[in-house]
Simulated assay, not measured.
Amino acid sequence: MLEHIQARTHHARRGTLKNAFSYGVDYVLTDLGATKPWLISRNRFNIWSLWDRRHGGPRGDGRGAAWFKEVLREHGFQTDGARLLLLTQPSFLWFHFNPVSFWIALVDGAPRAFVAEVNNTFGHRHCYFCAHDDFRPIRRSDVLIAEKLMHVSPFQTVAGQYRFNFAMDETGIDIRIAFENGDQGVLATLRGNRRPATSRSLLWAALRRPMGALRILALIHWQAAILYLKRAPFLKKQPEPESLMSDSQTFGSAGK
């Protein structure tokens, strides 16, 4: 199973200093099985590629879907009968960078748990496990809250919380992440339709939005330059989180 999500992402800074931008981005939704379109491969070089070592575990030393299954079982989730998927930006040629990927557990077509796998430009990673305490379906209106534990932007402190709204059905995805720290924060969204990945769609993506991850890094640094020129407070590189994963407050309350 491999789908090509030609998505749109929007970021808007809240607080005294305003800044907003949106751009198109290419994601794939996959069960990390065999890949069919000839322009994309798993664990080998291609125009587009998916690598198990880039996901599921410490950055650069991942174990793919086996890691996600392990995480689910450790949290008491019964994986028998569940569909485990990864929503991510594939590598383009030699370039790879993912600000955020999502591991998703579906039962009867509805998301019951997900892991937001967050990476920063300093080489750090932290994963946020999000679910209801009884693993009931996650609806669009549900808000799953997680404490921010990793330095992501040099213009935002390591404080506050993420508020996730996660919607996924047979036709598309609609993810909303609101970072809130008092009257400061950032709203980020990712929306796109689900379509089977084809060589034609992947070739068009390579021509329309060339360089993949390198383009994403360039856009990140361009927006950082804009904030710097606007004299946004700049925070130096912070220490890496002590743990790889933390639980959302909704799920964490189950053990209290």
Score class of each variant (00 low, 15 high):
residue 1 M to L: 09
residue 1 M to W: 05
residue 1 M to A: 08
residue 2 L to P: 00
residue 3 E to D: 15
residue 9 T to M: 11
residue 9 T to W: 05
residue 10 H to Q: 14
residue 13 R to T: 04
residue 13 R to K: 10
residue 13 R to C: 01
residue 20 A to C: 02
residue 21 F to T: 04
residue 22 S to V: 09
residue 23 Y to Q: 03
residue 24 G to A: 10
residue 26 D to E: 13
residue 29 L to G: 05
residue 31 D to C: 04
residue 32 L to E: 04
residue 33 G to R: 05
residue 33 G to E: 04
residue 34 A to Y: 06
residue 34 A to G: 08
residue 34 A to I: 09
residue 36 K to L: 15
residue 38 W to V: 11
residue 38 W to G: 09
residue 42 R to H: 12
residue 44 R to C: 11
residue 48 W to Y: 14
residue 49 S to L: 10
residue 49 S to C: 08
residue 51 W to K: 05
residue 55 H to D: 07
residue 63 R to E: 15
residue 63 R to H: 14
residue 64 G to P: 07
residue 64 G to K: 04
residue 64 G to T: 06
residue 65 A to T: 10
residue 66 A to Q: 12
residue 67 W to K: 00
residue 70 E to I: 05
residue 79 T to A: 13
residue 79 T to L: 12
residue 81 G to R: 09
residue 85 L to V: 08
residue 85 L to Y: 09
residue 86 L to V: 03
residue 89 Q to N: 11
residue 89 Q to S: 11
residue 89 Q to M: 14
residue 92 F to K: 04
residue 94 W to D: 09
residue 95 F to N: 15
residue 98 N to R: 06
residue 104 I to Q: 01
residue 105 A to Q: 04
residue 105 A to H: 04
residue 107 V to F: 12
residue 108 D to R: 09
residue 110 A to W: 04
residue 111 P to G: 00
residue 115 V to P: 02
residue 115 V to K: 06
residue 116 A to G: 08
residue 117 E to H: 06
residue 122 F to V: 12
residue 127 C to L: 14
residue 127 C to K: 02
residue 128 Y to K: 00
residue 129 F to A: 03
residue 129 F to W: 13
residue 131 A to N: 00
residue 133 D to H: 14
residue 134 D to F: 01
residue 137 P to C: 04
residue 138 I to D: 00
residue 146 A to R: 08
residue 155 F to K: 05
residue 157 T to Q: 15
residue 158 V to D: 02
residue 159 A to P: 02
residue 160 G to E: 00
residue 162 Y to N: 01
residue 164 F to K: 00
residue 164 F to M: 01
residue 165 N to E: 15
residue 166 F to A: 04
residue 167 A to N: 08
residue 169 D to M: 08
residue 173 I to R: 01
residue 175 I to L: 13
residue 181 N to C: 06
residue 182 G to I: 06
residue 183 D to L: 10
residue 183 D to K: 12
residue 187 L to E: 13
residue 190 L to A: 06
residue 191 R to Y: 08
residue 196 P to L: 06
residue 197 A to M: 02
residue 197 A to S: 05
residue 198 T to Q: 07
residue 200 R to Q: 13
residue 203 L to T: 04
residue 203 L to H: 03
residue 206 A to M: 01
residue 207 L to T: 09
residue 216 I to T: 12
residue 217 L to M: 13
residue 226 I to C: 07
residue 227 L to D: 05
residue 228 Y to G: 13
residue 229 L to G: 14
residue 229 L to K: 11
residue 235 L to T: 15
residue 235 L to N: 15
residue 237 K to D: 10
residue 243 S to L: 14
residue 243 S to N: 15
residue 243 S to Y: 14
residue 244 L to E: 05
residue 247 D to K: 07
residue 248 S to W: 02
residue 249 Q to P: 00
residue 249 Q to W: 06
residue 250 T to D: 15
residue 251 F to A: 00
residue 252 G to C: 06
residue 252 G to K: 03
residue 253 S to R: 15
residue 253 S to P: 07
residue 253 S to W: 09
residue 254 A to V: 09
residue 255 G to K: 13
